[in-house]
Design a protein around this nucleic acid. Structure first.
Length: 287
DNA sequence: TGACACCTGGGT
DNA sequence: ACCCAGGTGTCA
């Protein structure tokens, strides 16, 4: 489900709904979705420290870097989420008649300022490619858990974007997908940005002129912002915590439009495989 | 750089 | 029965 715009849509809803609520208790249905920092392959087993899952804390902030999300509580404890392909956070208001769904792995019980039940936050992830990682501090979050991520795609400067992209010789789309280079762009928005910038996805990154890269950054940010305004793209599973789907898929120019005519020139949109991902582009508009 | 692995579900 | 899917880590 998640690239930057989808995760940002989730962040905004969570910030609005959860800020100020306190975490009363947590129910761990599948403990192996919780991954420790230094031992990413090990699960916590049966002895889960519920404090690491924010129990007793009151939610102060919800932050995002690239495609990653984190809940911050008042005393500095942080819980970090990678949504993988199908991870989703759902907010179920107290008293709502929501039935338990398949593939729900963790459920937090939240209380309001007065101590009354506010609702439940639920982690649902059918494919289980996602992860929940307790991090003790801001320092552990930024210097360990997120240390390998490049600058956020919405915040990266033009100079830094150009130099980081050009630091490798692989296909430009592969560089865009590399979260170490720039964080937040995935398969959809890489294809859409390259189309809008008129750049062939296979072009060698270091043989793309600084001027064209400046243009690529500009249109990528433009597309990401448009997508956020539309609530992200809902191809199959993306829903925000209130169950609303995004609408940006209706605006896709190339992603998912193979064999259809290019919106700009009418040429048939082709696909190939790049970095193991299906890539859609217009052979006439992108050079 | 690519192949494969991790998973489940939906479409053909 | 097969192929595909918004991600990411490891291996040759």
């Amino acid at each position: 489900m998640p690239e930057l715009p989808e995760v940002e849509s989730v962040r905004r809803v969570l910030l609005d709904r959860l800020t100020g609520l306190s975490v009363h208790s947590v129910e761990v249905i599948r403990s192996d979705v919780i991954k420790l920092i230094k031992h990413p392959r090990s699960s916590l087993g049966s002895a889960i420290d519920h404090r690491q899952l924010l129990v007793g804390g009151s939610i102060k902030d919800v932050i995002r870097h690239g495609k990653r999300l984190a809940l911050v509580v008042h005393d500095g404890r942080i819980l970090e989420f990678g949504l993988g392909m199908s991870g989703l956070l759902r907010f179920e208001e107290a008293g709502s008649t929501g039935e338990e769904e398949l593939h729900e792995h963790v459920r937090w019980d939240l209380k309001g300022v007065g101590g009354g039940a506010a609702g439940k936050l639920i982690w649902k992830d059918p494919r289980r490619f996602g992860s929940i990682t307790p991090v003790g501090s801001w320092k552990a979050l930024t210097q360990v858990q997120w240390a390998h991520l490049g600058p956020d795609a919405l915040k990266i400067s033009e100079a830094e974007f150009i130099s980081r992209i050009r630091a490798g010789s692989s296909a430009i789309k592969v560089r865009l997908l590399n979260q170490q280079v720039v964080a937040g762009i995935g398969n959809i928005y890489a294809d859409e940005a390259l189309f809008r910038a008129g750049i062939r996805p296979r072009r060698a990154a270091n043989r793309t002129s600084p001027a064209r890269l400046a243009q690529l950054r500009r249109v990528a940010i433009e597309i990401l912002r448009e997508a956020i305004s539309a609530g992200g793209s809902s191809i199959r599973t993306h829903l925000d915590p209130e169950g609303r789907s995004g609408r940006f898929q209706e605006a896709h120019a190339v992603y998912g439009r193979q064999n259809e005519p290019c919106v700009r020139c009418g040429e048939v949109i082709r696909t190939c495989s790049l970095g193991g991902r299906t890539t859609a582009w217009c052979v006439r508009c992108q050079k």
